[in-house]
């Protein structure tokens, strides 16, 4: 087996599911395609030896975030095709713009070959390693993330709470 084959398969799936997220008419389909897409991305993490990240990714994204999305979707009862779509002109414009961006982004992100040869370390993505980094070098941002989550929490409460008028 060509060792690079998994990459291409996963990549194709990723791109396909991402496109479907955008193109699906029904919001729920979009959500499901997105979940699928996240799984493919998780696959890339595995390919890249980032096992811890893979786990976190699945838990956080597929497990929490997407559930939240689905929940909201259900909550506002949007399972049907009630989304008003943009006019065709706008769609064409959006596609053209995004296409241009795509070309440009791909065009301007070249040059990785100029980097020095890649590292042979394979233990980067382990829990132990990342744990050391998180509680060592990155302690301060890690702690501050808690402030961030706190802020988000307070914010969500503030917005969600029924106002006492």
């Amino acid at each position: 087996m060509n060792p690079s084959l998994p990459f291409f398969v996963l990549a194709t799936l990723s791109v396909f599911s991402a496109l479907m997220v955008v193109l699906s008419r029904k919001p729920v389909h979009s959500v499901l395609y997105l979940i699928f897409c996240f799984f493919t991305i998780g696959g890339h993490y595995l390919l890249l030896n980032a096992q811890f990240l893979f786990a976190v990714h699945i838990i956080v994204y597929a497990g929490a975030i997407m559930v939240l999305f689905l929940f909201t979707l259900m909550f506002i009862n949007m399972n049907k095709e009630l989304e008003p779509h943009k006019t065709n002109l706008l769609k064409v414009a959006a596609t053209v713009a995004a296409g241009c961006l795509l070309l440009v982004m791909v065009g301007v992100t070249k040059g990785a070959e100029k980097l020095a040869a890649h590292s042979t370390r394979s233990d980067v993505g382990t829990v132990a390693n990342l744990g050391k980094a998180l509680y060592g070098q990155y302690l301060l941002p890690f702690e501050l993330i808690s402030i961030l989550l706190l802020a988000a929490m307070v914010g969500a409460v503030l917005l969600g709470k029924k106002s006492v008028e």
Binding site: A97, C100, L101, V104, M105, G107, V108
Partner: peptide, 9 residues
């Protein structure tokens, strides 16, 4: 896009 094109390309 404009900025990228103008500066990069």
């Amino acid at each position: 896009i404009t900025i990228l094109v103008l500066t990069m390309i």
